[in-house]
Write a protein that binds this DNA or RNA. Structure first.
Lengths: 213, 213
DNA sequence: CGGGATCCCTTAGGATACTG
DNA sequence: CAGTATCCTAAGGGATCCCG
């Protein structure tokens, strides 16, 4: 099933033989957020053909990176320990890629899972540790997330709950994460709409989450 | 030229749009060792079709990851600063892949550049810093390398020079890097042949370079 | 309805030959 | 030496269908 390989006895070539095929790392990315059903993965990766998704899931299982969750009533895929070891690597890769993210093009989407990982990438635990615990409700494009920061711990969920600050970010939220403009400026320019809560908390958010340019 | 992309506004998807196509990361891997000419890249990646190599080189240039070296008499490709930022990521990916490297199959080759990167991955600078400077000449498969360790610094070249220990490693050298067997055992089992120098230095090598299993 | 399998078409990738 | 050009195969993309 795997078929073609690079034919090199090297750590990187081996890694690429395992997760280098098209879509594979994005499947791992979404599974880093949590176990997912087949249809959830398909929904989070709208452009993946169903046969490719099925093929990748088989390959990733054969490679010991994911498994069908045992003793779960519904069929969900989850990362194995070996697969979860990719987390720091994928976060670093995301930080690297984020640097050259241009303005979103028309067809580019933001999914809850992809945004969750981007927030994990941007999270600065040492900064957050010195700040009061804060809960945010944020909407990026169509992705609505509940972001709970408690000391150096971050939890991003799709659930609902009481928050200190609720805001909706336009496509330029990226510049906020890069620290390119101050919260007041972000609101004034219409990049961010504060729905509930005090504006000062937006500055706390911008200090907690930061990605270099 | 790039054509298809993932259509997601996410750091990881962007990274994969830039270096996720087949062979791209292996080109970057070899360029991490040093600037390379077209024919050198082709030689280090024997299975890459020449048209694919040409295409990737153009895409990587367009993405700002590599460039044709300016003010160089011969035409060589080299990494840009942005491209070099991939080094820690690729080393981590290589360490991850190395864990599941099985015995080498017949068709799997080891190139000088790939082995150089694997050695960088395995290098433990803090361990080496406490050991005397040592130069090794090592042959892995057909790749002959000069490995100079001086305190926390590592230099791997294809050149020649005076060494403290010269050895040739069979396909099972991987187990040596994993610390799976002691140097004496490695020699006794025929996995490693010491050509020149004292056997004890092989233990120093095994302590300096280590990859988990 | 979730979890795929099947079909068809397009295009990237593999192999080889050839050229400025 | 540094690539194009060509041809062929197989993987990916897209829609639909099927089965438990």
């Amino acid at each position: 099933m795997a078929g073609r390989d690079y034919g090199q006895y090297s750590g990187i070539a081996q890694a690429l033989d395992l997760v280098g095929e098209r879509w594979a790392m994005l499947i791992v990315r979404d599974l880093l957020v949590g176990p997912r059903r087949y249809s959830e993965l398909a929904a989070g990766l709208p452009r993946i053909p169903t046969n490719v998704l099925a093929t990748r899931l088989k390959e990733l299982q054969a490679a010991g990176i994911i498994r069908r969750a045992p003793r779960s009533r519904v069929l969900v895929y989850e990362l194995t320990d070996y697969g979860r070891e990719l987390e720091p690597i994928l976060l670093a890769l995301g930080a690297w890629g984020f640097k050259t993210l241009d303005d979103p093009r028309e067809e580019q989407i933001i999914t809850p899972d992809s945004m969750t990982i981007d927030l994990r990438t941007a999270f600065r635990p040492h900064v957050a540790a010195a700040l009061p615990a804060t809960a945010y409700a944020a909407r990026f494009d169509t992705a609505e997330l509940l972001i709970a920061v408690d000391g150096p711990r971050l939890e991003v969920t799709r659930g609902d709950g009481p928050v200190d600050l609720a805001f909706a970010a336009g496509p330029d939220f990226r510049r906020l994460l890069r620290g390119e403009f101050a919260p007041e400026e972000a609101v004034a320019s219409g990049v961010v709409h504060v729905l509930r809560g005090r504006l000062e908390l937006l500055e706390r958010f911008a200090r907690t989450f930061r990605l270099a340019a």
